[in-house]
Nucleic acid binder design. Sequence first.
DNA 1: GCATTGCTTTCCCATATGGGAATATGATGC
DNA 2: GCATCATATTCCCATATGGGAAAGCAATGC
Lengths: 113, 113
Amino acid sequence: MARAATTSDVFNAIAEPQRRDILLLLRDGERPATAIAEELGLSQPGTSKHLRVLREVGLVDDRRDGRQRVYRLDARGLEPVHEWAGGFERFWNESFERLDAYVQDLKRNGSAQ
Amino acid sequence: MARAATTSDVFNAIAEPQRRDILLLLRDGERPATAIAEELGLSQPGTSKHLRVLREVGLVDDRRDGRQRVYRLDARGLEPVHEWAGGFERFWNESFERLDAYVQDLKRNGSAQ
DNA sequence: GCATTGCTTTCCCATATGGGAATATGATGC
DNA sequence: GCATCATATTCCCATATGGGAAAGCAATGC
């Protein structure tokens, strides 16, 4: 089975740095494909391929405008990612991590022995 | 170049569903490798490989306990993921998405013309 | 229709990766 | 040392994927 396809799993789609960059860029507003390639310094075909992945996974929208194809962010698909990662929030807040480690240490070594 | 290795990029490391499952499981407390494999119904070698990836990318910690190797969550590496996704929060809150689409429509078609 | 601009798709290649099977390594008990 | 349990690693294979180059399409202007 392997990993779910980049075109069907948001987590996998955003595992590629360039695609994350594209999403960040589109946060500032829609853009035609060429502009995206230029602003990020990517090849035109490469950009097109990444945009296709993002489109199929539903993170961007596109519409024609003359001969240009304008891409727009549709970040709703990122909410599950945010929530998933948020489920671990307590592990990086309030030095919970260190506290937990301390407790684990106590459990297996005992403190005053 | 391609995608950053699963062992060096947290986004890529968590792009694999089974590794996400392992992390969720470890949220409830540390466990020896075999227990993880059993609870998730994964093969022993497969689990070991996933754990190695998670270890190398820093999302889990491990320690020996007799002949067992106990794995513990270290989710601090997930904070960047949470923040990154959180940067898109306004797009799924307050129907900002629809408002934006509406504005874009106005811009290119004009409403009362 | 034809040339041009703006993208998308196709080819082909190199590599990363997950899976299963088999093997190796480490720790414990006798 | 030897058997055994708990894991890790190695092999090999099938596939997903990103990249570059080249070709294919669509829309526009003349």
